[in-house]
Design a protein around this nucleic acid. Sequence first.
DNA 1: TTTT
DNA 2: TTTT
Lengths: 162, 162, 162, 162
Amino acid sequence: MLNRVILIGRLTKDPELRYTPSGVAVTQFTLAVDRPFTSQGGEREADFIPVVTWRQLAETCANYLRKGRLTAVEGRIQVRNYENNEGKRVYVTEVVADNVRFLESNREGGNSSGGGAMREEPSYGGGGRGNGNGNGNYTRNNQDPFSDDGKPIDISDDDLPF
Amino acid sequence: MLNRVILIGRLTKDPELRYTPSGVAVTQFTLAVDRPFTSQGGEREADFIPVVTWRQLAETCANYLRKGRLTAVEGRIQVRNYENNEGKRVYVTEVVADNVRFLESNREGGNSSGGGAMREEPSYGGGGRGNGNGNGNYTRNNQDPFSDDGKPIDISDDDLPF
Amino acid sequence: MLNRVILIGRLTKDPELRYTPSGVAVTQFTLAVDRPFTSQGGEREADFIPVVTWRQLAETCANYLRKGRLTAVEGRIQVRNYENNEGKRVYVTEVVADNVRFLESNREGGNSSGGGAMREEPSYGGGGRGNGNGNGNYTRNNQDPFSDDGKPIDISDDDLPF
Amino acid sequence: MLNRVILIGRLTKDPELRYTPSGVAVTQFTLAVDRPFTSQGGEREADFIPVVTWRQLAETCANYLRKGRLTAVEGRIQVRNYENNEGKRVYVTEVVADNVRFLESNREGGNSSGGGAMREEPSYGGGGRGNGNGNGNYTRNNQDPFSDDGKPIDISDDDLPF
DNA sequence: TTTT
DNA sequence: TTTT
């Protein structure tokens, strides 16, 4: 009925942009979010929270986010599951973001003012689906997104948030 | 740096109250939260989101929450991991709640006014730890919480949120 | 950069549906939200928080919400200001909702299952504006919404959230 | 029943630290939060949202926050009212923060890594009240906080959040 | 393994 | 498998 998450943390790696078979952009990254207390041993720990973005927002994230950047994410928790190659059901929990704020832009480059931003344009119940893509000029590299690392992509159109 | 979740959904089962070896109450339950859109096939789907509560809040949840109840939960996402019996690292994502609102109390009993509520009393950095328990009069049954179902409990004091 | 509010409380009155000069539906209501602590005198106090909804969501709220209903609201804080008739600048703070959940439907009528719901369909940066209205069949009374109580409406198209 | 706000914005001025008659620290500041859309005229507007912090958190904010800093605030909306000198009831809406994150520390000084942080230590229903203060060494200036600008302070112990 |  |  209501499902809202807000996170501020740092990317553990550069984001990964891919495309579903029907050509929809998906970007995944992990946010390291420090816990608000120290562990029994006295160290500060973090939660490593997987984030997914779709379509235009995915392309913007792939273009502007980088490893280590402080980033705010707004979205919802999603729990999807699939059967792995041993026939066991695996549960994957991730945050599907609809709003991402870049709190640090191009760190080296002098300008340290937070500010860049992007928001998902929802299309509840109408059209939109499957058309937010196609233009390869947003991709960060030229390799085929469907064969980029040999592993089958663990993403299908069924994961589309709308 | 910031990690906040707010959910409204229904319990998929009665909550489970347990105690850690050092006697701290823990209650776990799953919230079914309808997605804000229908799937490609047109059905309404839900996310099944695991929730954990500790200490006094755990005991209140065990006492008042039941399967099917509409419930609001506020907390943070936690990702913990452990090695399973095949030596493989397993990641568990759950919401550690610090505020739970009972939006429906005793449904059959005439009174359908939402209202019951409970909030974690944090004790950041000071005392409190390990003492929020002991009084068996909050437990819902008389069985030994450490041997109640034969399975070893997948919870240790290391999971304590403070 | 980020502005998110989530409230659960009860309507202090039936909601008020009006229309802007250009015909856009607006519904306002106030949510009484109990504070999470008691005052010095030991009484439980509440905050009375004004909420505004627009367009389709405004019409659904006007149709389904009633005084006393437990309701969840998601939105953003907006501070607008205008000059009053004494030439003084007045600041109005309200929550502009984009998601409203009816946690209690028709209380008397037997069915007490929470569930009704409605979400704003945003139209960031594109069209949409000024067309989400017109059909008088959603109004709860027949009086002219622009002269219904003698007082000029304190809402103009400039308050439109998009 | 539930009242949660999360904001990211910039301070419009340096924060103001004061003390209540009984010596409790209070810091107020205003956050400029850009709206997620442009106005009809095409300009980007902002909401100017007043924030209040208490006790230790108030002192940390006064010490570390400055005009222009990008800051995340977590708290609840509070609506208080008082009678002004013309005998008219005035309503003041503000965010009572319990968690403040400094997303930019000392901008000039080379180090632009977000990170500083502070959280309110709640003391729900027990003690604590009236003792979180006293030591003037946290104040940023030497003037008497109770007569610093001629105007009576619009804050009393009744505004204490706990 | 799931709720209404 | 993790960020500062």
